[in-house]
Amino acid sequence: MENASNQRNSGDSLMRRPTVQPTGREVTFGEDELIVSKTDLAGVVTYANDVFLRVSGYSEVEIIGKPHNIIRHPDMPRTVFKLLWDTIQSGEEIFAYVVNLAKNGDHYWVFAHVTPSVDAHGAVVGYHSSRRVPYPDALPKVRALYKTLCDIERSQPDPRSALEAGTRAVHETLAAKRCDYSQFVFSLSERTAMDLSV
């Protein structure tokens, strides 16, 4: 409880970007496990399950009340998070391959399912994320796409045009494949389609 009170006293720590340096080491979790977290409408963590805590290396008191982007990895394109937030704020679910940053700088890939949480009256009260071990056949494609997006974002003079250029690139990719994002993300792995035929 001591840590928690320290965090709450230092109000500005809520918004401070984490300064964890990536180690390049990958950690994994079990195929039968789900990493679960919940946030409020502003993206502040309100719950993290035990798998989340174990894999990320944060304790419950360290993570509750922090912005969810504390585990954001620098290799993640900002465009993907914009797409994610736009989607869940419109009340839809989204699936995304995400690489996260652990407290010690290690990283772990997840296949995240993010959904809005609604109350009995249908109002969105927060967001929920369930993450699975990603399907290995999808990862090379995802890494290549994310690298392209990061390069596009870095080629732009400011964050706003970086997001616009990245979003444009995503739309072009989807248009070339003649599908929407949801169909695209499920097409990245044979395994997701196999779940339909078992």
Partner: peptide
């Protein structure tokens, strides 16, 4: 329970819109 309810509802909603690419993921 939470994950299952969310997944099942979303998968069925997609089916209801004639979109069949999204299964309930068995993993986990």
């Amino acid at each position: 329970s939470d994950a299952f309810v969310r997944e099942a509802a979303a998968a069925m909603r997609q089916c209801g819109s004639d979109r069949f690419h999204r299964p309930v993921l068995l993993r986990g």
